[in-house]
């Protein structure tokens, strides 16, 4: 097979530039294979995170031709090889070096979320159908691609006020756990700023685990917040006359 050109961001916090590398393409090759090939033969100090190489750990997140992707799951033969393939770090997070970004903010947000707390005296029996919807959320591999694509974080950088899709998924998993006894709606509204999300579904589109982030996690959580904090009559008035008139 022919060579491909990878146009890879090289740089650090201070700045950097895209550098072109020629890589021989083999059958079934993924972008992460190409990055490894560059490391082994051309640039041993090319920084990249990866672990499992099988889309189970969520480490190798980057932007391939501008799209947030797991590099281990992005096939070279699915990309137009007649032009350079750009590989850049996730834009929503500060660059550390090359393709590695500082994702520590996510771990800080996670700490704010009260963990699973079983209801007192609970019996440890659960029906599979009740577990199903939570298991969907538990599939999350924390690749943070949903955070990367979310315009509230990516374009508006509201990291102080907003938790981001990943953590709505986590809260949804806790809130919908059949045996959980805590209520996290105030946290959603006040600390995680769920109101900033205007359900454009960008997060759902990039999720490599195909979690229905918007429909199954965020919208039901928004409904809970509304139920708890907003009077339904006021809501109707707002809908009819617009928010300014209420």
């Amino acid at each position: 097979m022919a060579d491909a050109t990878l146009r890879v961001f090289r740089g650090d916090r201070e700045g950097g530039k895209a550098v072109d590398y020629q890589v021989p393409v083999t059958e079934g090759m993924v972008v992460l294979d190409a990055i490894h090939s560059i490391q082994a033969h051309q640039a041993p100090d090319l920084a990249v995170r990866w672990n499992c190489k099988a889309a189970k750990c969520g480490s190798c997140s980057a932007e391939v031709n501008g799209k947030p992707r797991l590099m281990c799951k992005t096939r070279m033969d699915a990309l137009p090889l007649d032009q350079p393939i750009t590989v850049s770090p996730m834009k929503a997070f500060p660059v550390i070096r090359d393709l590695v970004t500082d994702v520590s903010w996510n771990y800080k947000v996670n700490k704010k979320i009260p963990p699973f707390q079983p209801r007192p005296g609970v019996k440890w029996k659960m029906e599979q159908r009740d577990v199903d919807r939570v298991q969907e959320f538990r599939k999350c591999i924390e690749c943070f691609l949903c955070q990367d694509v979310c315009h509230v974080l990516r374009d508006h950088d509201k990291k102080e006020q907003f938790g981001g899709p990943r953590f709505f998924v986590r809260v949804a998993a806790l809130e919908m756990h059949p045996l959980d006894g805590l209520d996290r709606t105030r946290l959603l509204k006040e600390e995680l700023g769920i109101g900033f999300c205007n359900i454009t579904k960008c997060c759902t589109e990039v999720c490599p685990e195909e979690i229905h982030i918007t429909d199954n996690a965020i919208i039901p959580l928004k409904e809970r917040v509304v139920d708890e904090f907003y009077d339904p009559v006021t809501m109707i008035v707002r809908k009819i006359f617009g928010a300014k008139n209420t």
Partner: peptide, 14 residues
Amino acid sequence: RVEGSRLFNPGWHL
């Protein structure tokens, strides 16, 4: 031999 700096350098790590 390892090239580059000590900043996130996979060749050095290896």
